[in-house]
């Protein structure tokens, strides 16, 4: 009896154990180490001083820049992505075009990092093709007009290149779930287009729309490579600051780095929690 129980226990866990051990070693422990470290001083004593250290203008500043870029790129990505998804789902575009757009979105949402920065530098960088084309062909100097790719605005524009496709990929299944009969039922009950959107589609879609935007936000918040390759360190992102801290302890306080990491985990963690809550809400309705 004991033996067979033992056997069953071994059998039940044997397939999952390697995965759990791996996750513990390379996902949970490293993260926990940073979280615990955020509450310790250099002598391994409990402290909250590290979080006070986060209030240094250098750090709060970069948190705000990161939040700004993530939030603005998420909101714009949500807006443009929604419009594009609507055009694909209900605009009456040819079916072939829809398939092409969806494939392209799969590619573009994965085309992030350094090559994306290169593509934008080659297009609208100071000597980029579009920049010099406009200057020589039309006498328009976009840099003289105030445009700068290596700025917060330029970074947001670059981020949109993967944010919009990501929004399309998340949101297309939601719009595809809208049944034709809802529109017809509403119409028969006297509703016009605006009332249909206002009373039926909007209450149904807003959790998904906001949820998607939050996911885009978290996606942009953790990004680093594009910004690094594009701007070096001229835009002061929290990820870039942390990168510099890891390489050379620029803050001269190891545990302050841990506190920054904790702050980032808190922000992405809360974002993802909200996303999951909102998603499960709309999924309940559509079950």
């Amino acid at each position: 009896m004991m033996k067979s129980h033992w056997h069953k226990w071994v059998r039940d866990w044997s397939g999952v154990a390697p995965f759990l051990v791996f996750s513990a070693l390379f996902l949970i422990f490293p993260t926990m180490y940073l979280i615990v470290g955020a509450f310790r001083d250099s002598h391994d004593h409990f402290t909250l001083a590290n979080f006070l250290g986060l209030l240094a203008p250098e750090i709060t500043g970069s948190f705000f820049v990161s939040l700004e870029i993530s939030a603005v790129s998420a909101i714009l990505g949500m807006g443009f992505g929604f419009a594009l998804t609507w055009a694909i789902a209900f605009g009456g575009l040819p079916a072939q075009l829809r398939a092409t757009i969806v494939t392209f979105c799969g590619v573009a949402s994965n085309f992030a990092g350094i090559p994306l920065a290169f593509a934008f530098l080659a297009s609208v960088g100071r000597i980029g093709f579009v920049t010099s084309g406009l200057r020589h062909g039309f006498g328009i100097d976009i840099y003289a007009m105030g445009f700068n790719l290596l700025s917060v605005g330029g970074l947001i524009m670059t981020y949109l290149y993967f944010q919009i496709p990501l929004m399309v990929l998340i949101f297309l299944p939601v719009l595809d779930g809208i049944k034709r009969e809802w529109g017809e039922a509403a119409q028969i009950l006297g509703a016009n287009s605006w009332q249909y959107w206002r009373h039926i589609l909007f209450p149904m879609l807003w959790p998904s729309v906001i949820g998607s935007a939050i996911l885009l936000f978290a996606n942009a918040f953790g990004a680093i490579a594009t910004a690094y390759a594009l701007t070096g360190s001229s835009v002061n992102l929290i990820t870039l600051l942390l990168y510099a801290q890891i390489r050379g302890d620029v803050l001269h306080n190891e545990n302050l780095g841990f506190a920054m990491a904790f702050g980032m985990i808190a922000i992405t963690g809360i974002s993802n929690f909200c996303y999951l809550q909102l998603r499960s809400r709309s999924e309940t309705w559509l079950r």
């Binding site: 422990f29 993260t31 680093i224 942390l242």
Partner: peptide, 14 residues
């Protein structure tokens, strides 16, 4: 949820 920079930060310390 955990940005990759956090992950590698943890690796380097642990």
């Amino acid at each position: 949820v955990i940005p990759s920079i956090i992950l590698v930060f943890g690796y380097l310390r642990l």
